[in-house]
Amino acid sequence: MSNKVIKYILILALAIIAAIVIFEFVSNNPDKRPSNPFEFNVDNYKAVDETLISYKETRQIAIKDGIPGAIAFSHGQLYLLVDDYLQVILPGGMEVFKRKLSEKPNCIAVDRDGFIFIGFENRIRTYDKVGIEINLSEVASDKSHFTALAVSDDLIYVADAGEKQIRVYDKKLQQKHVFNGESGVSDVHGFILPSAHFDLAVNSDNELWAVNPGLHAIQNYSETGRLRGFWSKSSFENDGFSGCCNPYYIAFLSNGSFVTSEKGLVRIKIHKESGELSSVVAAPEKFSNGTKAPALAVDESDNIIALDFDRKMIRFFEPK
């Protein structure tokens, strides 16, 4: 065999090897792979009519250190729980103070006098305006898992996702009532919590409203646990709630309208007191493709403050 033939054979072999390598590279390149034939797609429900959006995002504050847990707004200040720290900042971002807490906190609320109430796994602690601990409740139960706090003029309401109960304390952290809620069916537990999350809020009329996610409902209770009213709406469309854990967080505007945030289809909306959809604050396109619903707070001007866990930032939405 002549050298020329051998040379051609070697060149051909090299070309074949190169083609195989290129084919392998291209076929394994994520961008070149065929789309997922089994894709779970909710894009149809992400579209929101622009006329329905009543708020615009104006700015953000990044949370650089730690994992954010909860947020509250009161007295012109933002109260943040990050890891096991209480951080109080001005809306402009300047830190007022930062205190290390004795255990990992879950939820926070501030009353009209500026006292700070923080819910931990199964107890509450009270702090003064500068973050000094001044009181501590008894442990509620070994199964307790506190996930939300709200304060009225006289009472503190605690959502206990572990026991599926709402606990009512006075300001001295003495438990006054505890109730299971009502589902409408006598032999079924009132609060149906598919996951270990349970939210509640108090409006400007001191009324307690609690989320019943297993029913896609928001329910109004008296302090002793009597169901006084509710509304619910199951839907993937903007006017309702989808999945098994929504609405995830609620808050109130000054006119009594509900602000809600959801997971899955991550979005923030405003519902009238009757439950009817009023407008959309932030459409799903505003959020990363994560699964975490943003925690909510509302300031004195009805600006909506969202704690975005995926992007680790506080996001401010103002009326258009």
Binding site: G214, G243, C244
Partner: peptide, 15 residues
Amino acid sequence: LCGYCDLCGGYLKPG
């Protein structure tokens, strides 16, 4: 971990 709920997002399709 399951919530045993009626409105399961893994069982029911969107919409």
